[in-house]
């Protein structure tokens, strides 16, 4: 036990400031305020791999490492789409995942946002469309923002998340 505590003390806090926090203060404050107003520091994300190569997943997982410390910003991943504000979708949507993705989307309460992740999620990427791939996420569910990159870096993902919450969310009819 003692060696665990010593190690934690020895390493200290690695978490870094939010992207752009020293160059773009007003923008960040604005994002923070909006986040706070809408979610009260409780933005919840449901991730769905709709056919990714697993590269994008690695970078999404990296968001929770001590350097990016997503949870420290009040943003967390949840297991159920019913608890989520944002649907974070990776991959070209495979034909075999199309139905599951639609159901996850429908299970989410309003207001909600959908973020397509990676070149694949944004435009189909190297896999494109074909007998087994529907291509971009937007061909299956409405998308509010996309984060390009193959895979996108954790910083781009953070920026994408902060960016989408500045847009009007999808409201139910």
């Amino acid at each position: 036990m003692l060696n665990i505590i010593n190690r934690i003390r020895g390493i200290g806090i690695l978490s870094e400031a939010l992207p752009g926090s020293d160059t773009d203060e007003p923008r960040l404050r604005d994002i923070h305020e909006r986040l706070h107003r809408v979610f009260g520091r409780a933005l919840r994300i449901r991730h769905v791999d709709a056919g990714s190569c697993n590269g994008c997943e690695l970078e999404i997982q990296a968001l929770t490492n001590p350097y990016y410390n997503l949870e420290g910003m009040g943003i967390a991943f949840v297991a159920s789409p019913r608890h989520a504000d944002i649907l974070l979708v990776t991959g070209p949507v495979s034909v075999n995942m199309e139905e599951a993705l639609k159901r996850a989307y429908q299970a989410m309460p309003h207001p909600k946002w959908v973020v397509a992740v990676g070149d694949c999620g944004a435009c189909g990427g190297i896999f494109g469309t074909g007998y087994a791939s529907r291509g971009p996420v937007s061909s299956v569910v409405p998308v509010d923002a996309s984060v390009q990159g193959c895979p996108p870096s954790p910083l781009s993902l953070l920026e994408g998340l902060l960016h989408v919450t500045r847009q009007p969310a999808q409201h139910g009819s």
Binding site: G51, C53, G91, S94, V95, N96, M97, I126, F127, Y131
Partner: peptide, 11 residues
Amino acid sequence: LGYTHKGVAKR
């Protein structure tokens, strides 16, 4: 399994 089958061989 097979949910992420994207048709790589055809691609």
